[in-house]
Simulated assay, not measured.
Amino acid sequence: MIKRIIGSSSLEGTLLGLGCMSIGTDKKKAEEILLTAFDQGINYFDTADLYDYGQNEELVGEVLKQVRNEVLIATKVGNKPNPARDGWSWDPSKQYIKEQVKNSLKRMQTDYIDLYQLHGGTLDDPIDETIEAFEELKAEGLIREYGFSSIRPNVINEYAPRSSAVSNMMQYSLLDRRPEEQAFPILENNGVSVITRGPLAKGLLSAQFKKKLDQAKDGFLNYDQQELTELLHALQDKFENRSLEELAIQFNASQKVVSTIIAGASSKEQVLSNVKAMESPALSDEEIALLKQLTKDNGYSEHRL
């Protein structure tokens, strides 16, 4: 499995990571998914304190503690559950971050977090205070590195230059190329790696695309349903020897600023499908050019610089 260094850190993660949000709450099934990923060479596992209100962290920690020194565990903080656990509010304060890291460590049965990420970000954040919290946690040895996760260029432009964050997680796929215009250049110029999520665009870029198309009555971002139908069939026609999963994963991988591609899985079969796509040949320059020609490269309409 290909590995890349995350930002300016010493963290070396597999290019394909497992998004743990979809592993469910059944321990046996979750264990099967997690260990399948590990057995296939994946060493990067992405969770968050919000997923299943902490239960996801518990499962990830319990299953991976037997191989803790061989994996990178990334989790997130900032979304504060309400008492009824039927919603949450945003809290990027230093006090909240430093309180919650202890809870995440306890749930995951570990002494440190490899990559601790702010689960979002806005211009209204107490940015210097937020950064200070992560810097102190790093100095205390509770986290190895930290990052943030925002799709907003104006927010990224505040966090990246003012911190020693090594990563930013954001949505990116063939159907969502918005980060290319402003976000990617800012991050690359500041030595911050991109961790992509949603590479399969909610299953539209997968073998299940016909079923997903039927469900996408309102389209997907800048594509209406008819445009999606035409594009996905065009991709199949013009790339006869490539699956949609291959095109999706390898397109993400073609971006040098991308260190990690987070693909979720709710079964071991999905893990194996994602790994197969990751291990397929890299896209040629001609293939990349054709993919860019066929897809839209609209930038963000809001939160611009």
Rank of each mutant, 00 (worst) to 15 (best):
V77R: 10
L272E: 12
S164I: 03
R4C: 08
L142F: 04
N274M: 04
E302P: 09
I131E: 12
E32S: 14
M1D: 07
S280V: 08
I113W: 15
Q250R: 15
E158W: 04
D297W: 01
T110S: 14
Q40L: 13
S9G: 11
A207N: 15
L200K: 07
I73G: 14
T229Y: 14
F45D: 02
K102C: 01
L64C: 06
N154T: 13
N241G: 15
F134Y: 15
L235H: 09
L228Y: 03
G78T: 05
E145L: 08
A216S: 13
R144T: 10
L175P: 13
C20I: 05
Y53D: 03
Q270F: 06
L247Y: 06
R85K: 14
S149R: 01
V63L: 08
S89M: 01
A207L: 05
M169K: 06
Q208I: 03
H119W: 03
N241V: 07
T36R: 13
D49Y: 06
V155E: 12
V258R: 00
E180M: 09
M170K: 06
T260V: 12
Y96W: 10
S280E: 11
D125V: 02
Q109V: 04
S163Q: 06
K238D: 09
G203V: 00
N222I: 11
R68S: 14
L123T: 12
I2C: 05
T295A: 08
K106E: 08
L200V: 11
D176S: 08
I131M: 11
L244Y: 05
D49A: 14
T130G: 14
K211V: 13
E302L: 11
S10K: 05
P83V: 00
K80A: 14
L244V: 11
S301W: 09
Y53M: 03
L291K: 10
S93I: 14
G19C: 00
S273Q: 10
S164Q: 11
A234M: 07
S267C: 07
Q226I: 04
G17A: 09
R68I: 12
T110E: 10
A139P: 01
S150R: 08
V101K: 04
M278F: 07
Y96S: 12
A201D: 08
E70K: 15
G141L: 11
G24T: 01
Y53V: 10
I97D: 04
Q55K: 15
P92Q: 03
V257T: 10
E99Q: 15
G141W: 03
I131K: 08
R85T: 00
G61D: 10
S266M: 02
Q225P: 04
K210F: 09
E99F: 10
S243K: 10
A165R: 01
L123D: 06
V271H: 00
A282E: 10
A84F: 13
S301G: 00
T47G: 13
L294E: 12
K98P: 01
V192I: 15
A74S: 15
P153H: 01
N274T: 00
K211W: 02
M170Q: 15
D214H: 02
L200F: 01
I249Y: 01
S149A: 14
Q117Y: 03
L72I: 15
I127P: 15
V63K: 01
D128T: 08
P161D: 05
W90P: 00
D26Y: 10
S9P: 04
A201R: 02
K276V: 02
Q215F: 02
E230C: 05
N190S: 13
T14K: 11
V275P: 09
R107L: 11
E269N: 12
Y53C: 11
P81N: 01
Y159N: 06
Y159M: 12
Q215H: 09
